[in-house]
């Protein structure tokens, strides 16, 4: 199967073990699904872990409303393909209910607002665990994350009081109202994910491949044209040949100039790349500790 990549077999086995552990230790779990490659791989592994039975958790999409159309089309097809169930919760609903206030200004984004919608959903659905696709190599605050990450009743993460995680014994014990975030891909790198997608022939949203798109160059970031972006004076859209390295909210996910039209070309590009994938995300650039702050508050 992974003839040339024995380490992927080991990572796959580890992730499947973690997913089965979640099913055994928790009662009501959701798999957080964004339509990005990491959550695609996690859901694919969940399919594998419980086959021929259905996976015992639903996929949950926290929808900012600022989506790439291609992601939503993909999402609905993928859910059918892996025989899963989908729950969607909308940031718009949180705004309408007055739970959060829409950001204003040129760099307004709904990325941060997602946290409230997510925590509300966890409370509403009484979820005791949420599975995510985060990897430790993504960002320095994530390098210290456990596989089983405890969150208090406010959904907060406390990096100073993480439970020691020993061997493959995962402690998912908790009090009422608390929950866990679980990250089966903790030990994968971006390249591992791509290599795995290739080896397993997993379909991915078309915007990961090269295409022509009207983009706005703002502070070195290529943002896709959308009605959610407010142009400053002198700013204008230009047609570019791009692809996306990560998929998230349209207002903060930057494109990269690329002609990669096949998975091999994407892998080659990722391998040769000199900038981390989070480098295309303006949400991480707000301050040096941006990710750490968001994680403490209950972000993905």
């Amino acid at each position: 199967m992974h003839a040339n990549t024995r380490h992927l077999e080991e990572l796959e086995s580890e992730a499947i073990y973690v997913l089965r552990e979640v099913a055994a230790q928790f009662e009501k779990t959701a798999l957080l699904f964004s339509g990005g490659k990491d959550s695609i791989v996690v859901s694919y592994l969940a399919r594998k872990a419980f086959w021929p039975a259905k996976m015992p958790f639903a996929l949950m999409h926290i929808d900012t409303g600022h989506n790439f159309e291609e992601t939503i089309t993909y999402r609905d097809e993928w859910v059918k393909k892996i025989d899963a169930r989908l729950i969607v919760r909308y940031v718009q609903d949180s705004i309408d209910k007055g739970r959060v206030k829409e950001e204003t200004g040129y760099s307004a984004s709904r990325n941060l607002l997602q946290t409230v919608t997510l925590l509300d959903a966890i409370e509403e659905l009484k979820l005791d665990a949420c599975i995510g696709g985060a990897r430790r190599d993504e960002e320095k605050a994530r390098a210290k994350e456990r596989f089983f990450s405890h969150r208090d009743e406010f959904g907060q993460w406390n990096p100073k009081n993480q439970r020691p995680e020993l061997w493959d014994l995962f402690n998912g014990k908790k009090n009422m109202g608390e929950h866990f975030r679980v990250f089966p891909l903790s030990n994968w790198t971006e390249l591992d994910v791509w290599q795995y997608i290739k080896d397993e022939n997993i379909p991915i949203p078309s915007i990961y491949y090269t295409h022509e798109r009207e983009c706005l160059n703002r502070d070195g970031q290529l943002l896709a044209k959308s009605s959610f972006i407010k142009l400053k004076e002198n700013e204008r859209y230009e047609k570019q040949t791009v692809r996306f390295r990560t998929i998230g909210d349209m207002t903060c996910t930057g494109a990269v100039l690329s002609k990669a039209s096949t998975i091999d070309e994407v892998i080659e590009e990722v391998a040769a790349s000199r900038v981390t994938e989070r480098g295309t995300r303006s949400d991480d650039k707000r301050s040096e500790a941006a990710m750490e702050d968001r994680k403490k508050a209950g972000y993905f």
């Binding site: 040339n4 990549t5 024995r6 380490h7 077999e9 080991e10 990572l11 390249l191 290599q195 091999d264 892998i267 080659e268 391998a271 040769a272």
Partner: peptide, 12 residues
């Protein structure tokens, strides 16, 4: 060098 033809062959 970090290129794709050189996949790790000895596992982790």
């Amino acid at each position: 060098k970090h290129t794709i033809i050189e996949n790790p062959t000895r596992g982790l």
